[in-house]
Amino acid sequence: MSDLDQALERLRARVDERRRAGDYPPGLEEELASHFEQIAGERLAGEGLTIREQLEREVHLPVVDPERLAAVASSFVPGGPRVQGMVARLLQRQAAGILGQVAALTSNLWRGLEVVAGAADEAIGAISAPSPSFAHLVAVVDALVERVASYERAPAATPEGVAELARRVERLERAEASRVPRPWFRPGSLVEGPAEDPERWRRLLEGCQPVLDLDEEGSASLEQAVDASLGGVVALDLVERLGAQELLDLVRETADKLRPGGRLVAGATNPRSLWGLAHGSAGRPDRALVDPGWLSLCCREAGFSSVEVEWGPAPEPPGGADQDGELRRLVFAPTRYLLVATR
């Protein structure tokens, strides 16, 4: 018997002790099981109910006298129609949000769709042939009408109150209309760093055939490849476009697809170069900063036996060469790096 089994024996004995001492109420487990059986019984008993009966069990709407429908139509309160118009606009805005949430909910609860479909069938039947269901629908509509009518009777329904409410609604709508998302960067101001020399990566992959260029073929093509079938994989413009998890997955997938000795050549902006960050594409919202140290670690974790970083060309410093040396190293560090990982 293992230590864990012995521990379980002790725990079981402790339960018996607690029972004898009255720490656990007598019959607790049976009571809990019985309670759940009762819940299950109630849930399953509802199966045979109509949609309206189920709604009546779950939803409690205020019941309003159908006579009130006429009360709204005959209202002579000053400003009443205008208030109702604004209330309708507000309700419309609210309804759009609520409907959006309902849509999200029903997409998750596919069972809910059955209920909605059943309710729609029943409603259609109710409208075409007056029945108790129709009276229920009228009661629901009454509740909404009563809610709208109550705005009329509110103190705000004076001419000044109405004008203030109108101003607020218009201000709200103006504010929304002006809230157009604007990009926080100006694409035209971006200047790409020194272009990658295609000859350079070709040299790095000499003798590593076949080579899969992920920039050309797309990362999905990697998955199609047979394990350990590739000699080289090139990704000069891809890794910065990936999320953290996607990058990890890509490196692992590449490691699987490369044969022993095969090479991954991945390029990215060097986040340690202030010049590169200021003038390259690294600040764009669709790009991530990929530190060469992090990428190297990912490659080692994925099983690459050798990982080296080759720095790209450094930019030409503008305005003469009289800057302080330390500052030059900080600002004018190479803007790009090439990672070379060998299986």
Binding site: L4, D5, A7, L8, L11, R12, V15, Y24, E29, L32
Partner: peptide, 26 residues
Amino acid sequence: GGAGVLIPADDGPLVAAEALAGLLTD
């Protein structure tokens, strides 16, 4: 594979509660 606390099939929730308390406090 013996690498955890295995509650026998005929034991009730109270034994599981004690085992949970044991794993959390012992």
